[in-house]
């Protein structure tokens, strides 16, 4: 591959229970500062795969992971790796907007405060920069002290992106971040993703193949826990190498 791989995954397997295998031998190299879309039918393991990248899958009781995930050459499943450091480097935005029940300001400042920033002017600067980065500053700058729960769904989701940006991550994982939103909010977030890839590596899970073609540079197709095909988005959608990929993108199943 021409681009340097930021996240490199080898033989990744994951079981939710001894008999329930969700990922089977996944090998993939995710390039830096590009948008990678993960597509596939429901239950194919794409969300699970996303959660293995920042070890959020650890939270599921009874889960077992084998194989290797290297982030900038460092094995993230190594026991001496600090997950809080890892999750600061690799941020995540969820399907449902999940602002904390606090003010807009406190939501964005939550991450920096957690990581030890107490200085008020510095926090102010981080909050403004993150909200601007998530293209929501103009809408909320006059009500930073108001509850975040009063925002609309699309605004809440951009707030969550701002909250993720505030800890200055390297990678941004988005788990169907637009599937709960209306079309206008969705297009705003898609524009935002296009702008963010200048500075961040982005991995998104999406159900929506049009969305994948619109915003991603690379695309990976998952089926039944296996990575079937991975390549440039244009190539994957125009000239799929695998029959199953072709069936899926032409709408034969899923």
């Amino acid at each position: 591959m021409s681009e340097p791989a930021l996240l490199s995954v080898r033989n990744l397997e994951l079981w939710y229970a001894p008999a329930v295998q969700a990922l089977r031998g996944v090998n993939i190299d995710l390039p830096e500062r590009q948008v990678t879309a993960l597509i596939g039918p429901s239950g194919c393991g794409k969300s699970t795969f996303l959660k293995t990248l920042d070890r959020m899958c650890d939270l599921v009781p009874g889960v077992r992971v084998s194989g290797s995930v290297r982030y900038r050459g460092k094995e993230i499943y190594d026991p001496c790796v600090d997950v809080t450091w890892l999750r600061k480097q690799i941020g995540m935005v969820f399907q449902k907007p999940t602002p904390f029940p606090m003010s807009i300001y406190d939501n964005v400042a939550y991450g920096p405060r957690t990581h030890g920033v107490r200085d008020r002017p510095r926090l102010d600067a981080v909050v403004e920069r993150s909200l601007r980065g998530a293209a929501i500053w103009d809408e909320v700058k006059d009500r930073l002290k108001k509850s975040a729960l009063a925002l609309s769904g699309g605004q809440q989701q951009r707030l969550c992106i701002a909250r993720a940006l505030a800890v200055e991550p390297d990678v941004l994982l988005m788990d169907e971040a637009t599937s709960a939103l209306d079309p206008i909010s969705t297009s705003k977030i898609e524009e935002l993703i296009a702008a963010l890839k200048q500075r961040y590596t982005i991995v998104i899970v999406t159900h929506n193949m049009q969305q994948a073609t619109r915003i991603s540079d690379k695309c990976a197709f998952f089926l039944a826990g296996e990575l079937i095909e991975f390549g440039d988005t244009t190539q994957l959608f125009s000239l799929p190498r695998d029959k199953r990929t072709e069936d899926y993108i032409t709408g034969r199943f899923g």
């Binding site: 900038r72 460092k74 790796v81 600090d82 809080t84 450091w85 600061k88 990581h115 030890g116």
Partner: peptide
Amino acid sequence: MSTQTLSR
């Protein structure tokens, strides 16, 4: 790169 352990 920043430190890899939780701050003290």
